[in-house]
């Protein structure tokens, strides 16, 4: 699918368990219309953490690096982050609540949060088991992140249906208990309206 032809809304269930953190369970919605996108996360986390779900090199999101950050995960956060952008523009917009703080961020920083819905980097990975998810034929791909030099070794399991990644699961292969899982629970094509990908949208 060409990026300019995209018209899809996906609801994702995202869970993560890391030692020392409260188990995260949240819903993320991604809208694509042509080259415009909108990502909404209602976990109450900061925009940095939301973007880290897709961009952090370990594959398990941004991990706490201070005692205080570990404790914060137990503090029942609430609020929402909306990320708007277009592949053809240099800057997108982040809107955080509470406070309705709005600020521009380079699109290349925002894109991974929206592009996580689509397949990428499958070259050289052997296709695995076939199955069905959301009524679509799927193929499973398994790859690894890190390695000893990276200080971590994570197994990445992706279940792919056509252009879409319907399941993305990362587990610790070195004996730790960390795990992150993102599953598309609803995928609707052709339903996105221009208002859905505009800041201030009622979506």
């Amino acid at each position: 699918m060409m990026a300019t032809e995209r018209n899809v809304r996906a609801r994702l269930s995202h869970t993560r368990s890391l030692p020392g953190t409260f188990p995260l369970k949240c819903e993320v919605t991604i809208w694509w219309l042509g080259d415009r996108f909108h990502v909404r996360d209602t976990s109450g986390r900061s925009a940095s953490q939301v973007l880290g779900d897709a961009a952090a090199p370990e594959g398990m999101g941004r991990q706490p690096r201070t005692k205080e950050e570990f404790m914060d995960t137990y503090a029942e956060p609430d609020g929402a982050v909306d990320i708007f952008g277009a592949r053809s523009t240099e800057y997108g917009l982040i809107v955080e609540t509470p406070g309705s703080d709005k600020y521009e961020v380079e699109t290349k920083t925002l894109l991974p949060a929206a592009e996580r819905l689509f397949t990428a980097d499958l070259a050289g990975i052997t296709a695995g088991a076939r199955g069905k998810l959301l009524g679509r034929d799927t193929i499973e791909y398994v790859s690894f992140l890190g390695g000893e030099r990276g200080g971590f070794h994570h197994r990445v399991r992706r279940v792919v249906a056509g252009p879409y990644v319907l399941l993305h699961e990362v587990t610790d292969e070195l004996g730790g208990t960390g795990k992150a899982r993102t599953e598309v629970v609803a995928l609707d094509e052709g339903v996105v309206q221009p208002a859905d990908v505009q800041p201030g949208s009622p979506a």
């Binding site: 030692p19 020392g20 005692k67 200080g151 971590f152 070794h153 610790d172 004996g175 730790g176 208990t177």
Partner: peptide, 22 residues
Amino acid sequence: DFPMLNMCSGGGRYLGQPDQRY
């Protein structure tokens, strides 16, 4: 029976450091 490995150094882990401090 939580794995004490989570509290060890290496493997990108961190938790064991602040927990030892406190």
